[in-house]
Simulated scan of single mutants.
Amino acid sequence: MIETNLTLTIENINETHDREGSLICHGVASFSYRGKDGMVVDEIPYRAKGTPAVDIKGSGENCQGIANGYIDLQINEQENYKEKVATLVIRGFIPTGKTLQELAHFGATQEKSPDFAQDLEENISSENNNNLGDEPPF
């Protein structure tokens, strides 16, 4: 089994529970890597059970995070054809705290300082301007 660490984006989340009541999340995740033609974005199905599933569910769709796990190859046999399907089994997930929507709106809205902070800023700037002379300090 080959372990892997990926920075990925959870595209969608489907939830189920096993017989013991543990949460199981599965869906599609996307990740990027540098190929010969530049940056490439690829998708992979994933599944997680237990604590990683709770972390993924809590972060929501379109969240970014660091996943630790392994690739599980499943073979689907049809009439004359065998298809190998790779699935990322996530054993650990650390959300980075930012969703794509938050990153898209970053800097779009400026938060206004509270009133007491604005008064403090005005007092500091007026005191500095009053203490400055016409001659440089050096």
Rank of each mutant, 00 (worst) to 15 (best):
M1R: 06
I2D: 07
I2Y: 11
E3S: 00
L6S: 09
L6Y: 15
T9D: 03
T9S: 03
I10C: 10
I10P: 08
I10W: 10
E11W: 05
E11C: 11
E11F: 07
N12F: 06
I13V: 13
E15S: 04
E15Y: 03
H17K: 14
D18W: 03
R19N: 02
E20S: 03
S22A: 01
C25N: 15
C25I: 11
H26S: 15
H26D: 15
A29Y: 12
A29I: 07
A29G: 12
S30I: 05
F31I: 01
F31H: 03
S32H: 04
S32P: 07
S32D: 09
Y33G: 07
Y33D: 01
R34E: 13
G35Q: 12
K36H: 08
G38K: 02
V40S: 04
V40M: 07
V41Q: 01
V41G: 00
D42R: 02
E43R: 07
E43V: 04
P45C: 02
P45I: 03
R47E: 14
K49S: 06
P52S: 06
P52Q: 04
P52A: 04
A53M: 05
A53H: 09
V54W: 15
I56H: 14
K57H: 11
G58Q: 01
G58P: 02
G58T: 00
S59E: 01
G60V: 00
G60T: 00
C63V: 00
C63A: 06
G65W: 08
I66F: 00
N68K: 04
N68A: 01
I71S: 03
D72G: 03
Q74D: 13
N76T: 08
E77C: 10
E77I: 11
N80H: 14
Y81P: 06
V85D: 06
A86I: 04
A86T: 06
A86D: 10
A86W: 08
A86Y: 09
A86P: 13
T87A: 01
V89G: 02
V89Y: 07
R91L: 14
R91V: 09
F93I: 01
T96F: 09
T96N: 13
K98A: 12
K98T: 11
T99M: 05
T99W: 09
L100I: 08
L100A: 02
L100S: 05
Q101T: 13
Q101D: 11
Q101F: 13
Q101R: 06
E102R: 11
L103Y: 06
L103D: 00
A104Y: 07
A104G: 04
A104S: 03
H105T: 12
H105V: 12
F106N: 06
G107W: 15
G107S: 10
A108W: 04
A108I: 10
Q110V: 01
E111I: 07
K112W: 08
S113Y: 09
P114F: 04
D115N: 06
D115S: 11
F116D: 08
F116P: 02
A117G: 01
Q118M: 13
Q118L: 13
L120A: 15
L120V: 10
N123S: 11
I124R: 06
I124E: 09
I124F: 05
I124L: 14
S125K: 02
S125F: 00
S125E: 03
E127F: 05
E127W: 01
N128K: 14
N128F: 09
N130C: 08
N131D: 12
N131W: 09
L132Y: 00
L132D: 05
D134Y: 14
P136E: 11
P136Q: 08
P136V: 07
P136R: 15
F138I: 05
F138E: 08
F138A: 08
